[in-house]
Design a protein around this nucleic acid. Structure first.
Lengths: 214, 214, 214, 214
DNA sequence: TATGAATGAGACTTCATTCAT
DNA sequence: AATGAATGAAGTCTCATTCAT
């Protein structure tokens, strides 16, 4: 009985979260009412409160999108051997995510989470934790590259991590706004910038040129 | 009388906007009430509505911070002759702004404007217009650099513009969150990336190395 | 089988009522939820409704505490022969009840029942019926005392009944509030007042002085 | 401007409190909604919250009826010279209040305040403070009577105070329930009881017999 | 022009009760 | 008989906006 019940409970929770994401993406956190979420998820308002203590709890569960940062960390961790390959994978995974229309809502909700993080400490904690994971992994990757002699010695790993993440964030923002991004061109430029600034020899661009997407 | 009255009116408006900025930076757009703004600006709620038609009007006036983009555009326009200098100036002006504690509130309000732009078309128009100006000027700058033979031919001006702006946005976001940014290191890295990717010869870094600030 | 089932049912009912009394004493009728009662009694909310039709039904079953009035009536009925003894017993039984910490919860719930009786006719009926029984028995006791020549002729039995009951109620109220009552002193005073106002000769006090408790 | 404004404010507050008292007397604290109070007082719900922070605030302002205890204290303080007269006045003032139909609502609300005092510390403080004032004054009165040789030496002032107050409370309760009280008879009995228990000589009853009311 | 009391729609949340399992 | 998830009506309180002074 507990197993079925637990599975049910989790699926119900997801059903509500999915509805909430749609609402939040459409109207924003604050313009979305709990009635909206209930209606969209097909449950009563009372039921909503069986699964989440408050509306803020729902926001909390969505504002911090672990999947994005997990995917990025995973990409970098894949290529223990070759830091260059790790960077290339990172760009590719992130580019793919940016181009994915299925992630439109997540992006919009994510940007709202950034704003919410400014005044909600719990949300801030979640959001910056996700960022910190990616940053840590990036720093390690750059350090490995330096140790292997692939990256220049005068490169600051932390600056690289912060800067790349900042660029990703800005592109996410523009994508959320529906700005027309030429991801192919931007990807090529990013690879060129990385190659020019990080690498000891100019092999990066050619070696990592992905099969042209989008 | 109209002139004096106009000046009065404008000063009153600014007084309210300054108060609103402080409130918004502290609590966010939605958690700030019109009563909060009135109290903080020292006028009555009724008076508030003599200067702004709705609360959204106040948000609108603050969400889109022209000063930032105007400064950037101005920096680039300064150096009609030398595109490299234009880029250097851009980085410097933006770095100075990022490091300026006096702009803390503007940054926080700006990030909230980004989220608000997702669902408020008017705000979106304002915010993206500011971004478009900077982008246009950047594109022109890169094109001039290519024409002058300073920049590589295979560089996509639009990608450069979008990417640099994205990076600025991401850094603004992290600064708004209070993340500790090593702006010196980040500036050096950015110059290296730009030099490596854009320039036909590696003079950028040295020529533009600013008197060390941070 | 029906007999066992009935016993089970009754014990279950009591289990729920005991839990409800604890809840009501702690939080009051209105601040106690049916979920509270269910939790405290260790049954599910659904089960609660197998034993009581509504929450008001539970309140009803507790607001009117028959045990108190039954004990008082019984005390008076004991001494058919000597009305003085009846009064003495009444005071003693009531004093014992007032001093009994085990009746703390019942007192608190009782006081809430008084308030509830103001707007719930059914509760009012129950509460005033209990009071009426005590009153009737007191009136009969005083009348017997008058007939036997022990009590003064100009005494109004109804006034005596109402007044004594009122005093009991007030003391119950103060005890429920946790006021420090010197029950010994109050008992002595009450006996003196009764003796002075009711009796034809001043034997009451000495004859009825109980072995000092409290 | 402030004087008019203050007067207005106070009158508005009273208007709301009067309406609330009517509602509470009719339906009880908990069954009365803030919408009920607003409707009954002829203001909007929003306005209600301009004058009271919460519904509990309104309850608080009504649960503790200072007027009653103040009147009683005043009655006792009047007759500095003659304690007997003080007691007589006390009974008379209280009897008058009990018989006053204009105080019906106050009585009903008061009884609800007793119940509320069980779980709301602030209300408890207010209610018991009122009781303490009357008690203190009664104790002082009895002590004066003993010092003057009018009252017996073996009388416990505190017991007298507690017991008389308890009787008043119980009679208030019964009056609130609409029980038919023969106040004349009860008053006579109370005087007889006081005379018999407190006085050194039996002059009380005759000396203080009031012009027969009710 | 300035005020601030008044408004009322609507948000979030609770809770007594039901019912499928 | 027992469960506990689900319901939805209703309650308290907030707040952007208006308007008489």
């Amino acid at each position: 009985m507990p197993k079925i019940s637990d599975a049910r409970k989790e699926s119900r929770r997801q059903q509500i979260l999915d509805a909430a994401r749609r609402c939040f993406a459409r109207e924003g956190f604050h313009a979305t009412t709990t009635a909206d979420i209930a209606r969209e998820s097909g449950v009563s308002q009372g039921t909503l409160y069986l699964y989440f203590a408050t509306k803020d709890d729902v926001i909390l569960a969505l504002a911090d999108d672990r999947r994005e940062s997990e995917a990025l960390v995973h990409a970098m961790a894949q290529s223990e051997q070759d830091p260059a390959e790790g960077l290339a994978l990172l760009l590719e995974v992130y580019g793919r995510s940016l181009a994915d229309p299925a992630r439109d809502e997540a992006r919009r909700v994510g940007v709202q989470g950034w704003a919410e993080a400014l005044r909600n400490p719990t949300i801030r904690a979640g959001v910056t934790a996700g960022m910190a994971e990616v940053r840590t992994e990036l720093v390690r990757l750059v350090e490995r590259g330096r140790a292997a002699g692939r990256f220049r010695d005068d490169i600051d790993p932390d600056a690289v991590a912060r800067t790349l993440i900042a660029t990703f964030q800005g592109l996410t923002l523009q994508a959320a706004w529906g700005e027309p991004l030429d991801l192919g061109g931007i990807g090529r430029l990013l690879r060129a910038m990385i190659r020019g600034a990080l690498f000891t020899e100019p092999s990066f661009a050619d070696a990592t040129q992905p099969r042209d997407r989008e």
